[in-house]
Write a protein that binds this DNA or RNA. Structure first.
Lengths: 167, 167
DNA sequence: TTTTAGTTGTTATATCATAACAAAACATAC
DNA sequence: GTATGTTTTGTTATGATATAACAACTAAAA
């Protein structure tokens, strides 16, 4: 279908490409780092990648349970912890939900644009802003370690009227 | 004691000034807007302002309960909702906790520096970053409405060794 | 004083997350 | 291949955060 760059998370794209590439990256990274991408972890990652909308821990748990996985909370939180530590997903703090990371292979922070209408979330590139934040922090003598940058509003698709809920 | 500008949230300042000025601003704003700063709401605001560390809803609830206020969760969440809507406090999403706003009288977003060590949080000024974010968002056709900007790390006091927990 | 809107009380429950310990699976060395 | 240690998963329980729904009360307006 349409182009599918890392910035193209619109309503109209071949989402299988996102999933496949995320899974391929995950495999590679885990092998490189001697980490085990077990069944639950792998399936959790796939389920999170089923859309560009963040998935809640208990939504994920329900999906895993349907498929016969153990359905107690620790199962899903362990999988989430693993995936976050491996850099394969991000937690969206303002939603208490989890999102596949499209740049797992690059060291980066998650900066997000969150649509209030369709709830799709896309990561955006941020080097200049990141630099400005570091400068601002250090001007106050503050040593920056982590950043939570989550912007909400209306994505272009939703602004144009097509209230949506696609991948 | 020391100076007390809006940027001076170090360990050494006369915190009563912060509280008094926050309360005075709150009174004024509520009157202007025809809002009622009732007893619980007022006391909740004072308790949140007891430090520059964000306060959890249930911590606040406990303090209110000690003082004879009703001790069911809706009490505190209602007060928090009111204070947030009035612009008198912010929610720190990454901590699920609530912080007094030192600029309630100015239309603004909350951009925070959160110390991992002493847990003090200070708001910082952001006009240039805000502008950059708007530009970045609109380049993607995204219409920005709200921003969650929460930076964690080490504040200057804690970096200098004096692990701390003052107001 | 009646009405109305806003606020608070109360009970119940939804939602998000972790502690603690037992059992199983896996990797490695022998 | 079996003993050993490590990692992962199962299980039970509980902690932490937040809201729904409806009743009672209170202040302000008509």
């Amino acid at each position: 279908m349409s182009k599918n760059t890392s910035q193209d998370h619109t309503h109209h794209h071949n989402h299988n490409v996102c999933i496949d590439s995320a899974l391929a990256t995950a495999e590679t990274l885990c092998v490189e780092q001697g980490q085990r991408l077990t069944k639950v972890r792998r399936r959790a990652l796939e389920l999170i990648w089923e859309s560009h909308r963040p998935l809640g821990a208990y939504q994920l748990l329900a999906k895993l349970a349907e498929e016969g996985f153990n359905s107690a909370p620790p199962t899903v939180y362990r999988a989430l912890d693993f995936l976050i530590n491996a850099g394969l997903i991000h937690k969206v703090e303002s939603m208490n939900a989890y999102l596949g990371c499209a740049h797992a292979d690059k060291e980066h922070k998650g900066y997000f644009l969150i649509c209030d209408d369709c709830h799709n979330v896309m990561e955006f590139d941020y080097q200049d802003i990141h630099a400005a934040l570091i400068a601002k922090a250090s001007k106050q003598g503050f040593e920056l370690r982590a950043e939570t940058i989550e912007l909400t509003g209306l994505c272009s698709s939703c602004k144009d009227g097509s209230a949506g809920a696609s991948a």
